[in-house]
Design a protein around this nucleic acid. Structure first.
Lengths: 212, 212
DNA sequence: CCGAAAACTGTACCATCGGTCAAGTTATGG
DNA sequence: CCATAACTTGACCGATGGTACAGTTTTCGG
């Protein structure tokens, strides 16, 4: 990494931590540059204003998240050909990955942005909107593949079930923070997994007929 | 209401809206007093500093939330003696109440506080911690009552299922905000309801034996 | 109707913050 | 080796945030 992008990356990392801990409005450029060991002019060389910092942080966060999802659910696909099993494995891997975070999940940047929407412009909102919709699509299509082989045991629209995962994760992060218990996020993902299991696993009588 | 408490209440209402829209750190006392039509000194007469405002807002928010839960799930208890049906009715009522909010849910104050934890002291955190634990207990005991009559169809700890409701609600609020679609929150509560149904409804063969 | 407390107002103050500007310095790659 | 990227120095500005304190109006019990 070139010298410039390294500093830029450091700023983004420091800013992200601060924003997740205190909110965007309460995070001052001043404290970020102090932690990064640069001057104010140095900061404004990389980002023309605070809004540009917000945008860059968001883009970085989304890319990292995409990478993680690709990784975990890609790995799950390698471990099972069955769409239901693959998704259940992916959820388990996701739960484990969340459990392995040393100090718990640092927070969802999109959630903080949503709760400070008035501070951001349409462009930033468009960025996280497409990201959330992409994640919803990803899980919805995983469920659609399951739906092709297994009859759902309740009449519910699958896009809502797909969206539920992101909701459970964001809610789990909040409750983990609220109760200061990192395990909650993992448990909530596993609870969602339990729902998927119940929704698609055939009743026992049929299940026994089902081949491996 | 006396003159003083009326002004105090107005400040809290205005501040809550602003905090839910922009975050606590980004909400200035100046704008609150401008909207409330009082002076800065008037504000500091009611709250000795911004932290006291935060605390009062939180206490107010929690009390209102308790009231809503008591109302909806109390009404559900009147509508059915069966613990499962009562809970399912309560969830439906909750979903409807969320759908009836004119501009969508304004946001969960506890979620915004969690995402700005560094701005608040231990006392404030203790307040919302006990509130969240109380809500979790409420749902857990509702599930325990169901558990006494219906065998759960998956081995999952009920306290996690109970906590899931708050997670789904908070996550649903965020996704509603993110995608600017108020219906998502309602749909997510109904998705959680679908999970409860699947978790406790006996398989069809037994269900047909069940009386109304 | 009076006096005391409650509920404010007026004004002044200072640190901080976001942002700008101009000019200079250092490092790096082609 | 030189052009450009990646900064530093330092000064400045207007706005805001929170604090302090003295003064004024309103309310209400006796």
């Amino acid at each position: 990494m070139a010298r410039g992008s390294e500093t830029r990356e450091r700023i983004l990392e420091i800013a992200e931590q601060a924003v997740l801990a205190k909110g965007f409005g309460a995070t001052s450029i001043e404290e970020v540059i102090a932690a990064a060991g640069i001057t104010k002019s140095g900061f404004f060389y990389h980002f023309k204003d605070k809004n540009e910092l917000a945008k860059a942080m968001l883009v970085r966060y989304i890319a990292e998240n995409d990478r993680i999802f690709d990784d975990l659910f890609g790995r799950a696909d390698e471990l099972s050909d069955d769409p239901l099993q693959s998704f259940l494995i992916g959820l388990k891997l996701l739960a484990e990955a969340m459990a392995d975070l040393p100090n718990g999940h640092p927070g969802c940047l999109i959630a903080t942005y949503c709760y400070q929407e008035r501070l951001f412009d349409r462009e930033i909102r468009a960025i996280y909107q497409t990201a959330v919709m992409r994640w919803n699509d990803r899980f919805r299509s995983a469920l659609a593949r399951i739906d092709a082989s297994y009859a759902p045991r309740d009449a519910i629209e699958l896009d809502r079930v797909g969206a539920m995962l992101s909701c459970v994760v964001d809610g789990g992060i909040i409750m983990s923070k609220a109760l200061d218990d990192p395990r909650i996020l993992e448990q909530q993902i596993m609870a969602f997994r339990s729902y998927i299991k119940l929704l698609f696993t055939p009743p026992l009588v049929a299940y026994e007929r089902e081949p491996a």
